[in-house]
Design a protein around this nucleic acid. Sequence first.
DNA 1: GTCTATAATGGGATAGAC
DNA 2: GTCTATCCCATTATAGAC
Lengths: 191, 191
Amino acid sequence: MNTRTALLDSAELAIRQRGYNGFSFADMARDVGIRKSSIHHHFPTKADLALQLIDRYAAQFESALSEIDANKVAAADKLRLYQGVYRDALSGGSQLCLCVALSASRESLADPVLTRLNQFHENSTDWLQRTFTAAAQDLSVSGLMDANAEAHATLALLEGAQLMARAAANTDPFDRATAAFLSRLSATRNN
Amino acid sequence: MNTRTALLDSAELAIRQRGYNGFSFADMARDVGIRKSSIHHHFPTKADLALQLIDRYAAQFESALSEIDANKVAAADKLRLYQGVYRDALSGGSQLCLCVALSASRESLADPVLTRLNQFHENSTDWLQRTFTAAAQDLSVSGLMDANAEAHATLALLEGAQLMARAAANTDPFDRATAAFLSRLSATRNN
DNA sequence: GTCTATAATGGGATAGAC
DNA sequence: GTCTATCCCATTATAGAC
């Protein structure tokens, strides 16, 4: 495999498991099997690496959302899949999704990284708002409020639930926190 | 003022603004006006300091909840006050409440600190569950689901909303994320 | 209780050979 | 692209004088 890709993979896993401050060039070098000074050839600074990491992640996430949208299913089904993405990312409570991990490490991030992070959050709430607006049409979600409020609440709920589960090193808090949300989604329906 | 108290205050503010890794003995020493080696007289290690900090915080929080309970108001009013605690702690987006800041810095915490943190989360969900159970009696909250699920969802929502707002350095995401929650609470009623 | 002085460690980054 | 060697900095922590 590409050394550059191996470095990105190592960094992403470390950040998701131990946070931005828990990832160091020394650790990555040991992981990949090169010396730490060699990393600077691929990524001049730590901020450069973080920037490319979040860009790669955002692209993957966008494509995951497109895939969800490609299926012509009810809005409730899309929201169920969206919750599943966050639940899967937890890996049983051992890691966060990259965006939550970076949000939690805000104080250590360079400005350009912070900008991309907020862009990521905006893209997420935009997609959620569109989906909740669709739900108001297909009536697949119960107790609907304003779509913008629902979108922000859903993102906060899922990110907060990840944080709780990671603190407890257990999926349980995530499942409890999202149970009420899931129960508002109507049963799957192949329209 | 007590040097010990001044050190705790300085540490708490630093952690809430910049995270657990953004607080150092050097910074505290400058804040308080002593040399950093003198800090070890009051707190042998950084973990000792963190432990005493979270204990102090948990005691303050418990007393705030008792004060909320002391007023014989509807459950919805108590939940509104609870949301207000988290909103006020944000200080316009410049800091988190200590428990969220520590949750976000999980990877750097010593085991005893992590234990207290999870204890704090349990106390919080217990109080919320009792309050949602009361809401099922006084009918002051609309769209009620299972009290345990509501409790975990509310804590995750508030902590996640703080995280979003801190990332954006703005209260706005917090207000949007909690708007739907607030709208479920019936208007104030002096019973 | 506070000071000076000093470990001991680990972090990101650079220069220059190969 | 990767290496060795080195730099510079910040961090927590300790010893011992006052």
